[in-house]
Amino acid sequence: MTDPHPVPAQPDEPAEPTGRTHEEVHAHERAMLRRAMRSTLLLVGALVVVGGAVGLLVAGTAGLWGALVGAALAAFFCATTIWSMQRTVGKSPTAMAGVVMGAWMAKIVVLLIVLVVLRGMDFYDPYVLFVVLAIGAIGSALLDYQAVRDSRMPYVQP
């Protein structure tokens, strides 16, 4: 009696490799993260210049200070994420998760400390700070996405 669902013959040779070694993949990952860091630093520079000018026009010196504090927080938050990813290229997923989670917890602690220190102070405009920080966070996420999209990284390890 024959099997109604024949199993296809297994090839004698494995499928052709992708041609990329682990080192080449890691080099592409590092290049992509450098591109993301460069883009983020340019974004922060634009936040300082444009946000500072708009903040100065909208709320005077307090608006300028709000923009500068917001840009500094955005730089810290965005650069910490990229830095933690750069430190874990080629490491195990567990090590990567640990470093990224540790960086995230450090960011939350820094944010809480900054908010506690700034509470009740009147040298900055909190609305300008919020807008600049929000633009920095959203802009950084979009720039990170663009860096990953343009890197043409493989979905699976070779």
Results as ranks from 00 to 15, higher is better:
Val50Gln: 04
Gly52Pro: 00
Ala53Trp: 14
Gly55Lys: 02
Leu56Val: 08
Leu57Pro: 06
Ala59Asp: 13
Gly60Met: 07
Gly60Thr: 11
Thr61Ser: 15
Ala62Pro: 06
Leu64Trp: 12
Gly66Glu: 00
Ala67His: 01
Ala67Thr: 09
Gly70Ser: 09
Ala71Asn: 05
Ala74Phe: 00
Ala74Glu: 01
Ala74Trp: 03
Ala74Val: 07
Ala75Asn: 04
Phe77Gln: 08
Cys78Gly: 09
Ala79Asn: 12
Ala79Lys: 00
Thr81Asp: 13
Ile82Gln: 06
Trp83Ala: 13
Met85Ile: 06
Gln86Glu: 11
Arg87Val: 10
Arg87Met: 12
Thr88Glu: 02
Val89Met: 02
Val89Gln: 09
Ser92Gly: 08
Thr94Asn: 08
Thr94Cys: 00
Ala95Tyr: 08
Met96Cys: 05
Ala97Arg: 12
Ala97Thr: 15
Ala97Cys: 06
Ala97Trp: 11
Val99Glu: 08
Val99Trp: 09
Ala103Val: 05
Trp104Arg: 00
Trp104His: 11
Trp104Gly: 07
Met105Leu: 13
Lys107Phe: 12
Val109Ile: 14
Leu111Asp: 00
Leu111His: 06
Leu112Phe: 14
Ile113Ser: 15
Ile113Glu: 01
Val114Thr: 14
Leu115Glu: 03
Leu115His: 06
Val116Asp: 06
Leu118Trp: 01
Leu118Asp: 00
Gly120Asp: 02
Met121Lys: 14
Phe123Arg: 04
Tyr124Asn: 04
Asp125Tyr: 06
Asp125Phe: 10
Asp125Glu: 12
Asp125Ala: 14
Pro126Cys: 07
Tyr127Leu: 11
Tyr127Pro: 06
Tyr127Cys: 12
Tyr127Thr: 13
Val128Tyr: 09
Leu129Trp: 01
Phe130Tyr: 10
Val132Asp: 05
Ala134Met: 10
Ala134Asp: 10
Ile135Gln: 00
Gly136Ala: 07
Ala137Leu: 10
Ala137Glu: 02
Ile138Tyr: 02
Ile138Trp: 08
Ile138Cys: 03
Gly139Ile: 02
Ser140His: 03
Ala141Cys: 07
Leu142Met: 11
Leu143Pro: 03
Leu143Asn: 07
Asp144Ile: 11
Asp144Glu: 13
Ala147Trp: 04
Ala147Gly: 08
Ala147Tyr: 01
Ala147Asp: 03
Arg149Ala: 08
Arg149Ser: 04
Arg149Thr: 00
Asp150Cys: 00
Ser151Phe: 01
Ser151Gln: 13
Arg152Glu: 05
Arg152Ile: 01
Arg152Asn: 13
Arg152Gln: 12
Met153Glu: 06
Met153Ala: 09
